[in-house]
Design a protein around this nucleic acid. Structure first.
Lengths: 240, 240
DNA sequence: TAGTGGTCTAGACCACTAT
DNA sequence: TAGTGGTCTAGACCACTAC
């Protein structure tokens, strides 16, 4: 095909689709023509078409399904999450009127890593609980959070984990504790393969990682967490 | 080759290199064997090798140079930037003892977009200055920031833009203004092609986008900015 | 000039989905 | 069974870098 001389053909084709998706010619969840049809349409080899489709996949525009075809990804309007010393996930979502759930993926009782010791002021023989929590909005995976708490703050936590719905409900109902956010560290990264699968995104779609310390009101740290949140679904507002 | 039956060959090869880079067998800035050598080594077609190298490139492990070879990317330890109501880029870097520069890429005087009007409390006929600023640390591009200010706040700004070194120096020296950060919005995204080139990263390495409003002390907004920062070089700490 | 990565063609077989 | 995307081979030519 070669519309321009200076750009390689597979780039021309991927730019063509980016333009047409952005301008609405291809709508979300619409099926693209098959690879063979695109070969005929652009008069190039299948390998070139596949290079173009690979770029579109990597940039998050389409998702290929073996045996079915390539489909245009829904455009996400990121929800705006307000982060302050006392905002919580469910409060935020309730305020926005968004359907949401939390699921406990796994938990363990063990000893803290060096980083965890440092952040929670622990020694290496003080036991901790480590929880993996998946959060969903509108039935779609939004984030995975690893949360670490000293055992002495939440003794016998396992007995509260049946029918998990909200960590903060457990803490306030069973331990009369309401943690306060002390600091957060933001970083844009790529997901680990394991997280990408759970979040249902390709491995090179960015996530925002938020590492936080929660304290007792006016006191010592009680919770250290690392949240990995889909970048395309979420933005985070901080007031100063 | 096919070490395992369940994984495709190009994935095996890319995993092989990720392991060997992580474990230090291949060190940063080291040259990988050429594509033809890898074909012999793994006993596969060049196309398969190229698929593996493409994944390594996309995930930020290597950079290919036409005519020279593929080189292992230096591992970045992200610097920790402290964001508060009154921290500035140069203050932060000075405090960390890191060499840094700011460059004015371009500027223009014009009318505000709708978003800019909303954020700066302007009408569509009040002129604004729009600046593109590149920041570097250790001579490496770190971020690009688009900064918008009402003309009435900084009249005749163009006369101050010769020998640009720091926006906040200009504001304090020429206008006796010291803006205060009012709010910031964090989002993880992929860079625009234009930004990726300036930041010298492939187009699918994540950036963190920070959209901020700066106010007069206790007063109206004076500056609206959108910073796009390399995710692998930077993390941002907020205290509550 | 030799070696490197970038682009592209032609064709084969497989795994999965829809019918 | 037909159509789809996933994997892989074999070979060609080009643009760029180092020598």
């Amino acid at each position: 095909m070669k519309l321009q001389e200076d750009k390689p053909c597979h780039l021309e084709i991927s730019e063509y689709f980016i333009d047409h998706i952005q301008s609405g010619v291809f709508r979300e969840n619409e099926k693209l023509p098959s690879e063979n049809e695109l070969c005929l349409q652009f008069k190039v080899n299948r390998h070139v078409v596949r290079q173009a489709l690979a770029r579109l996949t990597n940039l998050g525009w389409i998702t290929p399904f073996q045996g079915r075809g390539c489909y245009v990804n829904p455009i996400q309007r990121p929800i705006q999450y307000v982060l302050s010393s006392n905002t919580r996930f469910s409060d935020n979502m309730k305020h926005l009127g968004i359907e949401h759930q939390s699921e406990l993926i796994s938990w363990e009782k063990g000893l803290p890593t060096e980083v965890e010791q440092k952040n929670l002021f622990l020694t290496n023989n003080q036991a901790i609980y480590r929880l993996e929590i998946l959060r969903l909005i509108n039935r779609q995976p939004l984030s995975i959070t690893t949360t670490v708490m000293p055992e002495e703050e939440v003794p016998n936590l396992e007995s509260c984990l049946e029918n998990f719905s909200s960590l903060y409900r457990i803490l306030s109902d069973n331990y009369q504790v309401r943690p306060i956010r002390s600091r957060s560290i933001f970083q844009a990264t790529l997901p680990m393969l394991k997280d990408a699968k759970i979040l249902e995104i390709p491995e090179n779609i960015p996530i925002i990682q938020i590492e936080s310390i929660m304290n007792h009101p006016g006191g010592n740290p009680i919770e250290y967490s690392i949240a990995r949140i889909r970048g395309d679904m979420h933005k985070c507002l901080v007031e100063f």
